[in-house]
Design a protein around this nucleic acid. Structure first.
Lengths: 223, 223
DNA sequence: TCAGATATGTTGGGATCAAATTGTTTTTGA
DNA sequence: TCAAAAACAATTTGATCCCAACATATCTGA
């Protein structure tokens, strides 16, 4: 007899929980850039020892969300405008290519799934969930590219700038524009027009980048 | 009295040293795919406790070089042919773009540095150093792209398949061909022809991929 | 024979201590 | 007085010993 394949073993370890909590806190801005994270304090906060805390911090560092210096501790990293711009540029290149692959394998089921994600994004009113629903839509399409490595890197790039992405979406026209552009991408996928889908995706990302960067720069200047 | 003969106390932390040692051992094949890594054994081997060992393993896991399952331990991951193919495909896309940026900013100093790296690669006789010198050449050019995030991802992709890359280079015509192709790329950079440099870089990577994969597949079939 | 019990080994995580390093404060000497 | 030196505090890194959770192999009894 074969046992039920439920993934009990994949249940989160303490390090997983701390990692997720910190990641989310950084994304929402609850922990601001430059802030110092002390291992002892975190261990106490999460009611564990330092061991899982260190593992979580190490993973955050690998993702570039924090930086730790020997004997000095770990701080939340802040990205410069140039760095943000570069990550968006990278995403435009990569996601454009990924959607091209995806359209090649596109089927009705995937389109249906993407349409639902698109609707969910368009009707959501809780701005805290914009980022998540935005990912849902794109990933629904990207899944069909059948390129797990590419997708992992896309995901990593999104993590790097997630907090900025969330900020961009809640800007006045960010959501409305994203809604429209998602529709366009979806239609190109339905028409199986991979070049148009790729071009729209690139434009979608670069447009968001431009709007975010102009926001960041005016904020920077007004300080 | 206990002697602590290891040079743990240099500048890198113990975890750094263990990480590097394991990484190199995996690259050279000293630790084969599927092999089991036990924390106790490693701690004893490096004359430390399990704490830095676990940190090193965690970092290796983040890079995808090993996989750990809860309460079961960590094993060296092996890539399927499809995965290897995908990483090469990814590199072709990304490195093609990176060299395009690099040519835009190209200067004589960089070309001189790349030429030296190219010569060093062409004249090296120790096959263990091929991989490193190959990286040196490409990075010398890529540096001028002034895209740190892109370069980090390139580096990460190379890490993922480093051991395969080394295997590919020591195949009979791998080195000779790489020599020729490096020359071509360098010349395109000198001519400031970014499209040709990009196309040659793509072809260089995809060619290596094709030759490696046919090698892997015949080996697979002959088993 | 084979399902269940048992033994053993490994990883996950806790607690506490020592060592190393950095930053801060206090003391000292000109 | 004030700059350099010394002492001190805070913090991270690592060691050691501990136990719990879980996996696997072996043994046992029907």
């Amino acid at each position: 007899m074969k046992f039920n394949a439920t993934n009990v073993r994949a249940s989160a370890s303490a390090a997983d929980l701390i990692f997720e909590a910190l990641r989310e806190a950084i994304f929402t801005g609850e922990i601001g850039a430059g802030e110092h994270l002390r291992q002892d304090a975190l261990a106490e906060m999460f009611n564990t020892s330092r061991i899982p805390v260190r593992e979580a911090l190490s993973r955050l560092e690998q993702q570039g969300l924090v930086k730790t210096e020997r004997y000095k501790g770990t701080t939340v990293t802040s990205l410069s405008v140039d760095e943000v711009r570069e990550v968006f540029e990278f995403r435009a290149l990569l996601e454009g290519e990924v959607i091209r692959y995806a359209v090649e394998n596109m089927d009705d089921e995937t389109i249906e799934k993407a349409r639902r994600a698109c609707d969910a994004f368009a009707t959501e009113t809780d701005s805290a969930r914009y980022g998540e629903l935005n990912r849902d839509f794109h990933y629904a399409l990207y899944a069909k590219a059948e390129r797990p490595y590419h997708l992992k890197i896309v995901s990593q790039a999104l993590d790097r700038i997630e907090s900025y992405l969330r900020a961009q979406l809640v800007l006045t026209d960010g959501m409305e524009r994203a809604r429209r552009e998602h529709m366009g991408i979806l239609e190109a996928c339905i028409a199986r027009d991979k070049e148009r889908a790729a071009e729209l995706t690139r434009a979608h990302i670069l447009g968001a980048s431009a709007s975010l960067i102009s926001f960041l720069e005016t904020r920077e200047n007004s300080k």
